[in-house]
Design a protein around this nucleic acid. Structure first.
Length: 348
RNA sequence: UGGGAAGUCGUCUAGUGGUAGGACACCGGGUUUUGGUCCCGGCAACAGGGGUUCGAGUCCCUUCUUCCCAG
C-alpha cells in the first residue's frame, strides 16, 4: 500500500515538479491548492484563480487527485494581522515565515492528516532528513531560512522532494514532462498575496500620517508618508535626492520620524551583536555553538558565530564574526550548523 | 529698498566661448517566495529679457529670485 502524500500546489513550477516527483516515486499523491488570499488590491489583481487553474491543470496532467483548501480566514488572522501589528509597532516582520509556521506546516498539515494523508509535501528548496531540516542542494535557492520555525513533529510528516535538485534542473524536468507551468515566471512578493508593494498593501489596513526625515547631522531633509512604511537599510522611496543616496538607519514611531544617513559606514546600519526573542529550536536546544553560523535574511551568506548566550527566558544574544548590514527588528535570524538548520529567533 | 555673493535636470553638482556630463531622486526592467539590498535602462536643466560674438551656460546690460553682512 503506497503512502498518501498531500502536496501543496501553488500553481508554480516548483510545486508542480514536486508533485510530479512524488508520483514518480510511487506515492499516492493528492494535489491541494491553498486559497489563502483572493482579494484584489488597488492597482493589483490577485492571481489566485489563475494559480488555482494552473495547479489544477498540472494535477490533471499528472493524473492525481486535486482539491482546494480555503484558509483565507486563518491566513488573514495568523499572517496578515501579525504583519500589520508588527509594522504598527515599528518592526519589519517576515510574513512568509509566519505563513509556513502557522498555515503550511500546521493548518495544512493537520487538515491533510485528518483527510488521510501520511505526509505532506511542498516545493521548498530544502531537505528533511530524519526529522532534521537541511539546506537545499541548490545553495543559491535554498529556502530553509523561511522554514526555521516549523516544528520537528511537522517535519517528521514532511517531504521536500525538490530540495535535492538545482533550480535549472527543475525547470528542465518541468519542460520535459510538458507541465503547463514549465515556463511560468517565479512568483515573488508576500506569499499568496502577490507582487503588491508592501506600502500599497499596508495602506489598506493602517492609517498613517506624514512625518519628518532627519539625516545624520540632525537636519530635516524631507517628508515621509508614515514611519511604519520604512525599514532599516531602505534606500528607495524616501524621495530625497542630492549627492549620495540616503539609507534609513532608524525610526521613532512615537515621533513619527525616520532617520537616514548618506554614510554607508554609519554605525546604525551595521550590527555585530544580535538580540533575539521568540527562539525556536527544531530539535533540542543546542548547548554548544562552536562552528555554527547565522543568516539574517533570505539568500544572505552565513556569518560565523563568535558566541551565543541566553540572557533570560526570552532573550538570546549572538555575537557575530562580521558586521551585518541592516539587521532589522522583526526580521529573523536563523542559526545553521553547516547544512543543518537548528532554529532561530526574531530580532529584537 | 545700503553693501556683498549667487542663480545649470525635482535635488546636489561638472562645465569660464564651440551646440550641457555625472550623482541622488523618480520611472521602467532584472535578481529575490518577507521587508530591504543590489544590477541594468530611461526621464529630465543652463531663472527671464536684451546685447557682444561666426558661435554664450560661460562675456556685458537689465529684470526677477535667493543667500550673507549691514539695519
Amino acid at each position: 500500500m503506497s503512502k498518501n502524500v498531500f502536496v501543496g500546489m501553488s500553481g508554480g513550477v516548483d510545486s508542480s515538479v514536486t508533485a510530479a516527483l512524488l508520483v514518480k516515486q510511487g506515492y499516492n499523491v493528492t494535489g491541494v491548492y491553498m486559497k489563502n488570499w483572493s482579494k484584489d488590491l488597488p492597482g493589483h489583481h490577485c492571481p489566485w484563480k489563475e494559480d488555482y487553474q494552473d495547479a489544477k491543470r498540472v494535477a490533471v496532467q499528472l493524473g492525481i487527485k486535486f482539491k482546494m483548501y480555503d484558509f483565507e480566514k486563518e491566513y488573514r488572522h495568523k499572517v496578515v494581522q501579525y504583519m500589520i501589528d508588527e509594522y504598527e509597532t515599528g518592526r519589519t516582520p517576515n510574513p512568509d515565515i509566519m505563513c509556513n509556521q502557522e498555515v503550511k506546516f500546521k493548518l495544512f498539515l493537520d487538515t491533510a492528516i485528518e483527510e488521510g494523508a501520511d505526509f505532506i509535501a511542498t516545493g521548498h528548496y530544502s531537505r528533511v532528513e530524519n526529522g532534521k531540516l537541511l539546506i537545499g542542494i541548490d545553495k543559491n535557492k535554498d529556502q530553509s531560512y523561511f522554514l526555521y520555525r516549523v516544528k520537528k513533529s511537522a517535519l517528521d510528516k514532511t517531504i521536500l522532494p525538490i530540495g535535492n535538485y538545482e533550480k535549472p534542473e527543475i525547470r528542465k524536468m518541468a519542460k520535459s514532462m510538458g507541465l503547463v507551468t514549465a515556463e511560468k515566471k517565479d512568483s515573488q512578493g508576500i506569499c499568496f498575496v502577490g507582487q503588491v508593494g508592501i506600502k500599497e498593501f499596508l495602506s489598506q489596513y493602517v492609517k498613517t500620517s506624514p512625518g519628518r526625515i532627519i539625516d545624520q547631522h540632525g537636519n530635516d531633509i524631507g517628508e515621509h508618508e508614515g514611519a511604519l512604511y520604512y525599514t532599516i537599510g531602505q534606500r528607495q522611496g524616501l524621495g530625497v535626492g542630492g549627492g549620495l543616496p540616503y539609507y534609513v538607519v532608524g525610526k521613532d514611531m512615537k515621533k513619527n520620524e525616520v532617520y537616514v544617513s548618506s554614510d554607508l559606514q554609519d554605525k546604525r546600519l551595521w550590527s555585530k551583536e544580535l538580540k533575539l526573542s521568540n527562539m525556536h529550536w527544531i530539535g533540542d536546544k543546542p548547548t554548544d555553538f562552536k562552528g555554527m553560523s547565522v543568516r539574517t535574511r533570505y539568500r544572505a551568506k552565513l556569518i560565523p558565530l563568535e558566541s551565543v548566550s541566553q540572557k533570560n527566558n526570552k532573550t538570546w544574544q549572538l555575537s557575530l564574526r562580521d558586521d551585518v548590514r541592516a539587521v532589522t527588528s522583526g526580521q529573523s535570524a536563523v542559526i545553521y550548523d553547516g547544512e543543518l538548520v537548528l532554529g532561530g529567533g526574531i530580532v529584537v
